[in-house]
């Protein structure tokens, strides 16, 4: 079985709030010194799903990352975690693609890889938080797609997925090959170990350019980002005090009853 996992390098969504700054001209967040880019945490969940399949029933796991200026220490992490191969799609032309254009490039790369049973990616990239690429990739490749997976099993020619629902989960079966996007409920990526890092040094990395995929220049974005700004917080917190915590509690109770009755 061959599983392809698509992972995006993004600015660390957990950088300290003081480090987050916007470049108003480029309409992008500025990478701060001292906080490295990371793989989108949901894509790491997807990688974990792939590695569990590999542990459970045996699979070759191929990680794919797309972008420009891919930091090797970041994008090689899947190899250290246990993936078998890495495909890097890196080109200045591929910086800041919109979701649909990204899906097109990834689809071309996946066609070039050729053989696969399952394509996994995170439920969304934790920078633009859109959650489009996985689904768009399925449409590009004409495959079925199951989103928000919290458990994935491959049973004969089908992929059986538990899909997160507000009050439980749905069981969905899709024909393979298919695309599955993974939710954080599936679980965190396993801890990287030093032996894992050393083993990764021997694993193959392919670097493909637009010409390798025979792709024309990407189509312009379908959506225009007309504004990007920091939300203004105007709330002023009213501190409810009292002689004792108990007194403050009672005052708070009255406030809650007034503002938000049962």
């Amino acid at each position: 079985m061959q599983v392809i996992v698509c992972l995006k390098q993004i600015l660390d969504p957990e950088m300290p709030s003081g480090s987050f700054h916007l470049d108003p001209n480029r309409k992008r967040a500025v990478p701060p010194p001292g906080t490295p880019p990371v793989l989108s945490p949901f894509d790491e969940n997807a990688l974990e799903a792939a590695l569990r399949l590999k542990d459970g029933q045996g699979a070759k796991v191929i990680a794919v990352s797309l972008g420009d200026k891919l930091a090797r220490a970041v994008v090689k992490k899947p190899l250290s975690a246990g993936a078998d191969e890495l495909v890097l799609l890196e080109d200045p032309e591929w910086e800041d693609l919109d979701h649909f254009a990204s899906a097109r490039v990834l689809a071309a790369a996946i066609r070039k890889i050729g053989e696969f049973d399952l394509i996994l990616t995170g439920r969304q990239a934790a920078d633009w938080d859109a959650g489009l690429v996985g689904s768009a990739l399925a449409e590009e490749l004409g495959l079925g797609c199951v989103t928000l997976a919290r458990k994935i099993e491959v049973v004969k020619d089908k992929v059986r997925v538990e899909r997160v629902a507000p009050d439980g989960y749905e069981v969905v079966e899709a024909l393979r090959p298919c695309v599955v996007t993974v939710d954080s409920e599936l679980g965190e990526l396993r801890q990287i170990t030093m032996p894992g890092i050393f083993a990764a040094k021997k694993k193959p990395i392919q670097e493909w350019k637009p010409a390798d995929l025979k792709l024309a220049s990407p189509a312009p974005a379908r959506c225009e980002l007309v504004d990007l700004y920091l939300p203004k917080r105007e709330t002023v917190c009213e501190i409810i005090g009292g002689e004792s915590p108990e007194e403050a509690a009672l005052k708070l109770a009255d406030k809650l009853l007034e503002k938000c009755p049962a």
Binding site: P31, P32, P33, G34, P36, L70, A73, Q191, M194
Partner: peptide, 26 residues
């Protein structure tokens, strides 16, 4: 220190530091 922060910000940290930072985070 600032040179290191610059490398880190560009994602050019050393791979073997990855597990240390991850352990800090988790």
């Amino acid at each position: 220190y600032a040179t290191r922060a610059r490398l880190v910000g560009a994602g050019c940290f050393r791979e073997e530091h990855g597990p240390i930072i991850e352990s800090l985070r988790r």
